[in-house]
């Protein structure tokens, strides 16, 4: 087999590459030319039967529906995650032998609930609501001894994890959690659960966007923004949210929306920047005020 001109150390490189622990089945796909052309009708039929029998058809249909419902930005990563979660659920992939303890089961349930909750963005309300119901079901199906249902302890734990993984600073979300938390032994109805989840997701996105806005305003290297501009943003926000204080009519949402629209916000910022007040720096810390404004509007549970 040494008929090639000498320079083929590459064969060895490829061997190295093959043995790299890529953690995928790709390496086993060697030489798997797709025999689609030569497949006879009978073989196709038996393959279809096979796929149906082992449940592949049903599994893929469900996965595709989830993709279409959630419309993720990166559907392939979404699918990988989807099947990973499914694998965790099946008993064959549980612990190695020993039965999982209550604590582990609880963690797995929380993980699955979080996964459901994140499948769709909260603005896709139908998909989000479906997923909230799925998460609620996940969490409600508890151990043998306990009655089914979601207790306040689990609910609070889920809220804390959401906020932690949403990278929101603890002191920012703590007031929110105090408002929408339930007592540990309380049963949490689905409506409360849904409202809590939604509020939490909206706040997390709000905080993320506020941080992004601050980053834009930030003077490079100073880690602080111009106070005049920053204050203008906060004032505009307060004005917009305050407008809805009196009546919960749809009109006040529209008014708040228009006050916060990019043009009026930009106008306020522009006015502030050209104003005569002396400039002073504003630290990122003060951003918390924005979150506080938001949280002030949240109705407490109970």
């Amino acid at each position: 087999t040494a008929t090639l001109p000498a320079p083929l150390p590459s064969a060895k490189m490829a061997a190295v590459e093959k043995r790299r622990p890529v953690g995928t089945p790709a390496a086993s796909f060697t030489d798997s030319g797709r025999p689609s052309v030569s497949r006879t009708a009978a073989a196709v039929e038996s393959e279809e039967d096979f796929l149906r029998q082992v449940g592949v058809t049903e599994m893929l249909r469900a996965a595709l529906l989830k993709v279409l419902e959630a419309r993720p930005e990166e559907p392939i990563a979404f699918l990988a995650h989807y099947f990973e979660n499914m694998g965790l659920r099946s008993p064959t992939n549980g612990g190695a032998g020993e039965p999982p303890g209550q604590l582990l089961l609880q963690q797995q349930r929380l993980g699955r609930a979080l996964w459901h909750l994140r499948l769709a963005h909260h603005s896709q309300r139908t998909a989000f609501n479906n997923n909230v119901s799925m998460a609620y079901e996940c969490l409600s199906a508890s151990g043998r001894k306990k009655k089914p249902g979601l207790d306040g302890r689990t609910y609070s734990e889920l809220l804390r994890r959401l906020c932690r993984e949403g990278c929101a600073p603890e002191e920012v979300v703590a007031p929110l959690l105090r408002k929408i938390q339930c007592r540990d032994h309380e049963a949490v109805p689905l409506a409360v659960f849904r409202a809590g989840m939604l509020t939490c997701f909206v706040l997390l996105e709000f905080v993320a966007r506020a941080a992004a806005l601050f980053q834009l305003l930030e003077a490079p290297g100073l880690a602080a923004a111009d106070r005049r501009v920053g204050q203008a943003v906060l004032d505009t926000l307060e004005g917009a949210l305050g407008a809805g204080d009196h009546a919960a009519t749809p009109a006040c949402y529209l008014e708040a929306g228009s006050r916060l629209g990019p043009d009026s916000l930009a106008l306020a910022m522009d006015r502030a920047a050209t104003g005569r007040r002396p400039s002073s720096p504003m630290a990122r810390e003060e951003l918390k005020k924005a979150a506080a404004l938001f949280i002030a509007k949240v109705k407490p549970v109970g």
């Binding site: 953690g23 995928t24 089945p25 082992v54 449940g55 592949v56 599994m59 996965a63 392939i76 990563a77 699918l79 990988a80 099947f83 990973e84 499914m86 694998g87 099946s90 992939n93």
Partner: peptide, 9 residues
């Protein structure tokens, strides 16, 4: 099967 699809994707 789920593991297979997970690895594939």
């Amino acid at each position: 099967i789920a593991r297979f699809f997970m690895d594939y994707f």
